[in-house]
């Protein structure tokens, strides 16, 4: 009876000599590969487009926010604050 090391050695030695043929390309294989490449390319294009759209939308939203904050006149802001503070002390 041998040890696991020896059993492993016998097994790997035989497995290394297993005949693994490098067959020629099967019929239709190239067509399937090229179809998958085309599908992957289209998906990648959509992904890039979506990411760019997201970046554009973020920039536009940030711009709108900035415009909204800066477009309020100081007087309008003061009136709002005074109204708010007055209403707080009303009975």
């Amino acid at each position: 009876m041998s040890d696991p090391e020896s059993a492993l050695h016998h097994l790997t030695q035989a497995a290394r000599q297993a005949h693994l043929p490098g067959d020629p390309t099967p019929f239709g294989f190239s067509t399937r590969v090229l179809a998958q490449v085309a599908a992957n390319t289209a998906a990648l294009l959509w992904e890039r487009l979506s990411l760019r759209s997201l970046a554009c939308a973020t920039v536009i939203a940030a711009g709108c926010l900035w415009w909204d904050l800066t477009s309020q006149s100081p007087a309008e802001e003061d009136r709002f604050i005074s109204e708010l503070s007055t209403s707080l002390f009303l009975p």
């Binding site: 041998s2 016998h10 097994l11 035989a14 497995a15 000599q17 005949h19």
Partner: peptide
């Protein structure tokens, strides 16, 4: 059968078992 052979063998496994040994490994 192959595993038993690998455990008990003093000699390398017969070449007819190469593909089976590969699959088992």
């Amino acid at each position: 059968n192959l595993a038993e052979h690998a455990w008990n063998a003093d000699q390398p496994l017969p070449s007819s078992t190469n593909e089976d040994a590969h699959a088992l490994l």
